[in-house]
Design a protein around this nucleic acid. Structure first.
Lengths: 194, 194
DNA sequence: TTTTATTTTTAGACTTGTCTAAACTTTTTA
DNA sequence: TAAAAAGTTTAGACAAGTCTAAAAATAAAA
């Protein structure tokens, strides 16, 4: 199945929005992301649903199917590898490459991106620090950030722990915090950000 | 003025056909080159004529304007530089890169192709031996051919020498022939084509 | 919980690039 | 050089992706 650039862009948009938000994405949100009108989004969503790339029920929002997700991740992979190429090999600055990568990510080839990856010596992150999915569609899902850098009311998922000393791990146990736990910042102590 | 990929492909087709043939190109020839129908070609030709990219009079064939030619050469430049990249950097074989370059040549950027050219260390020919136009749209206009294959009255520019033995080079010096010289065939000796 | 506001979908239309079929030119050939 | 053949253009239609305006459904508010 070969997709148009437009279809690929919709999948990518849904992927990143579903990610930032819960999972289901609204028509309006997509239309804002892609600078189109909601009615255009509805049309395309229906087309993608016909191709089994998204789950869709009228008025209920949209989410990616397994195939849809795989394609979206593949596009993210291409985008980020091209960004590495542009910065590391062609001397672009990291803030100049996004638009170009938006074009390059749509180049169709079975082999190109794997050869590019090898040429770049298998980078793990793009110039902005975002992780590069592997060729099977696996990706580290997170931006690493310190809990202390969040503001009140923000939530995150715990994916790693900096201090793995015994007393600290015990402390986390007591609070029932483990990898995968969702934490919401209720308030911060000004003196040490705890 | 920003052109669609389709428009670019038409310009490129007209450029290479005008080249191989005299100068004016017929609708049918273009339709064969691009695998479309003659009626589609007529439509597009008219559109390109409106944009002053081709000279066109009904039933009289088409040729590129100066602007049209410049754009076409720029696309050829992109195509050939990408081919060098694919072969020299990504280890493709020279016979695998054409289709990919057909896609890559349409990437839009003010700076990309110049940066790519520098990264490739300013190659002069693509992997098939065809010359790469410079950024001003100048290109060596020739297919390499043996001087002996020309007919009386034809002229060429010397771009390479097959026999680089000392006596032969001295012989060329005596005739003041060097790279870049223009030679016209006045007459040929039938016995050895000299 | 009924009314109001917001979001979403449908209907109809426009653009780009394509097609087929028919009309029109030009070229060839007898 | 007039009739036939070949090539070219026009007319009308279609698919993809978009839009505006109006209808339908959901969510929010009184």
């Amino acid at each position: 199945m070969s997709l148009s650039q437009t279809e690929e862009n919709y999948l990518k948009a849904i992927y990143s929005l579903a990610y930032a938000n819960s999972n289901k994405v609204s028509t309006t949100l997509i239309s804002e992301e892609l600078n189109t009108k909601a009615s255009s989004v509805t049309d395309m969503i229906q087309k993608l649903a016909d191709k089994d790339l998204v789950h869709y029920k009228k008025y209920q929002g949209v989410s990616l199917t397994e195939i849809g997700r795989k394609i979206a991740v593949e596009i993210v992979r291409k985008h980020r590898l091209w960004e590495v190429f542009l910065v590391n090999k062609l001397d672009y600055n990291w803030d100049e490459v996004h638009e170009l990568a938006e074009q390059l990510e749509h180049i169709k080839s079975e082999t190109l991106i794997d050869k590019l990856e090898a040429f770049l010596e298998f980078p793990t992150h793009d110039p902005h620090g975002d992780p590069i999915p592997d060729k099977n569609g696996n990706i580290e899902h997170h931006k690493n950030m310190m809990l202390s850098s969040l503001e009140n009311g923000e939530s995150i998922v715990v994916i790693g722990i900096k201090d793995s000393s015994d007393p600290f791990l015990k402390f986390l146990d007591k609070l029932q915090i483990q990898l995968g736990s969702i934490i919401k910042v209720v308030s911060k102590e000004p003196f040490d950000n705890s």
